[in-house]
């Protein structure tokens, strides 16, 4: 089974950071339940890690696995587009967008 591995870069414990993490986990739980991992990196605490991957914008999601690597920036509030951009399977099965 394909395992999904994500790095989520955020800047501080802000509403935007929390929204991005919640949205990412929501998508994974819906589309790749049980077969994913998310590591959250606070660029404010670990600027070296942001430097290492040349991250400018926050939030930024880096899909490490499966290859190829992908990046998406933003808080992922548009689930449909976020699922496509992250290359998650079965994204057409997502429930209709909540308002």
């Amino acid at each position: 089974m394909t395992r999904y591995s994500f790095l989520l870069y955020v800047a501080g414990n802000t509403d935007r950071s929390k929204a991005a993490e919640a949205n990412l986990r929501f998508l994974c739980d819906a589309l790749v339940p049980g077969t994913y991992e998310v590591e959250v990196i606070d660029a404010g605490e670990r600027p070296d890690l942001a430097e290492e991957r040349s991250v400018l914008a926050t939030p930024t999601v880096v899909r490490l696995a499966p290859p190829p690597q992908r990046r998406v920036i933003g808080d992922l509030s548009d689930h449909g587009r976020a699922a496509v951009a992250l290359g998650l399977p079965n994204h057409e099965k997502l429930p209709p967008e909540r308002q």
Partner: peptide, 8 residues
């Protein structure tokens, strides 16, 4: 996708 900033 959605709002972002240059926090990093």
């Amino acid at each position: 996708v959605g709002a972002f900033d240059f926090g990093a």
